[in-house]
Design a protein around this nucleic acid. Sequence first.
DNA 1: AAATTTCTTGTATGATTATACAACTTTTTG
DNA 2: CAAAAAGTTGTATAATCATACAAGAAATTT
Lengths: 207, 207
Amino acid sequence: MKARKRTRIEDIRREELIRAAHRVFLAQGLAGLTTASICAEAGMSPGILAYYFRGKEDVLFQMVRYNNRILMEDIVHRMRAAATPWDRLVAIIEGNFPAANYDRAAANAWLSVCAAASTNPEYARLQRTFYRRLASNLASCLRPVLTGDRLDALILTIGVMIDGLWLRRASDDSMTRERAVTRLHDQIVASLTPAELQSLRQTPAPH
Amino acid sequence: MKARKRTRIEDIRREELIRAAHRVFLAQGLAGLTTASICAEAGMSPGILAYYFRGKEDVLFQMVRYNNRILMEDIVHRMRAAATPWDRLVAIIEGNFPAANYDRAAANAWLSVCAAASTNPEYARLQRTFYRRLASNLASCLRPVLTGDRLDALILTIGVMIDGLWLRRASDDSMTRERAVTRLHDQIVASLTPAELQSLRQTPAPH
DNA sequence: AAATTTCTTGTATGATTATACAACTTTTTG
DNA sequence: CAAAAAGTTGTATAATCATACAAGAAATTT
């Protein structure tokens, strides 16, 4: 009983703080995240952070994990609702450009994590995990029609273009979500033969 | 005589400081750039910076302009040495992945500027100028065989992939320069018909 | 309800860092 | 060479911010 209750409150506060950090993150990137700004967003006193976390870095890291997790869960959810491999592919693309979020601020947030990954091995590991999952999701859609080098190549191109389109968003307001999704969409269509494409659109999705 | 001499020393110091800032930048990204680190790298006292610049932001901004300028000059130089439009295209690609520089640190540097662009309109303007020049260089290679939407689409894909491949480099050491260049190269080949490709390889470069 | 544990607050401390500036040195001018 | 101007130094100052912590409030236990 004692251990249960303590654990529950601890978990609640930790999650509140992580979610508050995440809101600040999406609005201002890693640079806007100060101990004070996180606690203020959560409606708590600045001292509380040290009580529930080892320090600011601890919150930041868990917040980025949280960010990647909800992104990935959303994508998996979209994929489950898709009937064909092609629809699953579209689900991945649209999930990587959330309608409510494709803006300068979110681009900044994403880029600041990528920049951190080049310095901090823990963040780099997180990013690689994210890319591995993306690659695995893409492979599950494309394997019916592609194998070997062509499969690897298209997976890399798609992943790289997703990042590149986010990066472009950081400085170019004319890069709308629609433009990004369409460009990626068309590029994939152009990378497949009509027969391959038709096969993706007709075969039902696996399990 | 008086004005000449003063201007000369001013220009020398300014350039020394900008170049010093650029070395720190390539090694540590924008985050590593403190007034002290710049001046130490230049072998000067920390106070000197305020004498020749309005402040730290002033140096940083001019340093990024310097960075973009030498990058673009290198690309133009490579393009001049190319005989066919195809070779000019390869020159652009290779110029965007300088052999000596495609590493984690440089990726961090580049990303930190892109992240800054999402917050700071001046940096955003700089980036857009850079992309516009890249697009114009690509167009000069591709216009012999492509027009309209297909031209625009390929230009966007190439630009976006360059950035995406840099971004991937930040967290993935297995993303070598060769892999990046090859992927981009192959993607362009796959986006053109054999006839278009042959035309690019045979037609001599304009002027 | 008293004692104890858990939780929360606000502030103090120390580190980092941009900037201003007074003092000093070197170069230029007359 | 003396005076003035230009260039350079090192430090003082003030701002920002992460972290530690003492003190107090709330909840739980006995």
